[in-house]
Design a protein around this nucleic acid. Sequence first.
DNA 1: CCAAAAGTGTTACAAGTACACCCATGA
DNA 2: TCATGGGTGTACTTGTAACACTTTTGG
Lengths: 223, 223
Amino acid sequence: MSVVAPVATAAVDVACLTVAADHRLLVLLAQARGGPFAGWWGLPGRLVRGNEPLDEAAAAELRDHAGLRGCYLEQLYTFGHPARDPRGRVVSVAYLGLIANCGRHPLPPGDERYLALGWRPVSPLPPLAYDHATVVRTAVARLRAKLHYTNLACRLLPGAFTFGELQAVYETVLGRPLDRRNFRKKILALRLLRPLGRTRRGPHRPAALWSFRTRRPVTVTVL
Amino acid sequence: MSVVAPVATAAVDVACLTVAADHRLLVLLAQARGGPFAGWWGLPGRLVRGNEPLDEAAAAELRDHAGLRGCYLEQLYTFGHPARDPRGRVVSVAYLGLIANCGRHPLPPGDERYLALGWRPVSPLPPLAYDHATVVRTAVARLRAKLHYTNLACRLLPGAFTFGELQAVYETVLGRPLDRRNFRKKILALRLLRPLGRTRRGPHRPAALWSFRTRRPVTVTVL
DNA sequence: CCAAAAGTGTTACAAGTACACCCATGA
DNA sequence: TCATGGGTGTACTTGTAACACTTTTGG
């Protein structure tokens, strides 16, 4: 039914995070071709269409502009400061995205909406359009908190990984080193992992390979 | 700037919770006077105006229709299923509200928007308009989770209270009994409370009165 | 003196933290 | 043989859970 002028419009923005091979935490940024922040880097996002769920709008942004499919997405927070978009009142539902192996998914060079796409470190974070710096910081805080009591780390790792790789993901996200023995003990106690029985050979002693029992979101701590 | 037809509009809904004197968890409901759910009970809420922050829209709903001022509010989740509002595409930013002593704030009888207002138990929850039953369940889950690691309980209690009253709030929200000695030990260890040095006299042995050191949101557990 | 809520300590167990050495491999 | 990351156990501390009796008051 018709809604008159002074109302707020809904949009989605996606803060898609990944851990790079060099153990840096990266966020997917896009350089706007037009709009009030033309030429600026920001998060992929757009207005929500009249008949699509929010989750699908977020997934479509990643798929259509970054070529990322099957990315984990969860709703992060809704940002609605009246002045956040100079064009008018836009309420943005922000999503946290997680993906493993950003290096495996080469980004397209750009398209009609974005001049370019790129993975950038979350610290230092370059100046971003709108309130997107706040969104990225919120996304990192959420990921950091949920690492402690969920299996979210599985979304930042490939299907088979070593304990060293798993620990590197935790250390990167948490921003501090962890004791190797205690880390292994704690993770094994959570019973989230399954040994694959295979090893990865490399320049050093071979490491056992593991996978997560399930990639469905699991909360570990009991209330 | 101008946004054409097929876009989503933003609204706010508030799930305001309180613990009644009889130790039931209640939610503030409003009976719609018009709209697609005329006559139904649901959460107070409306479309967001073009120049107001989301938080203020939520606070205004409580203030203008229920007479509640200074209620604690935090953003809960954003519900955006395309079919949630039969009139068209409305994305609803839901807020969790908390207030002490619902009995002290008599509700107005109704107004131009609502036929009536009332505090109703969250279980069993009556049939509600839109997806508001989901919103209420999400609000209860959030409150339940945050009781463990924040000082949110202070928003459900008056400025001075006994340990028995504090424990009753925890037991009501968590839905299970707690050991009195362990509860006191744990709460005191969190150092959130300040003894007032006064006691409350009643039909039994007088109980010491306490207050929270701060009502600002505090997270207790360290990462 | 009775009913009802307030107040208090100890013990057992689980979980978390700190910490050092040997192993297997490729270069 | 060396450099590098993989793999393991123990002692200590901290937190959590179970549990019963005495005190104070009003009626």
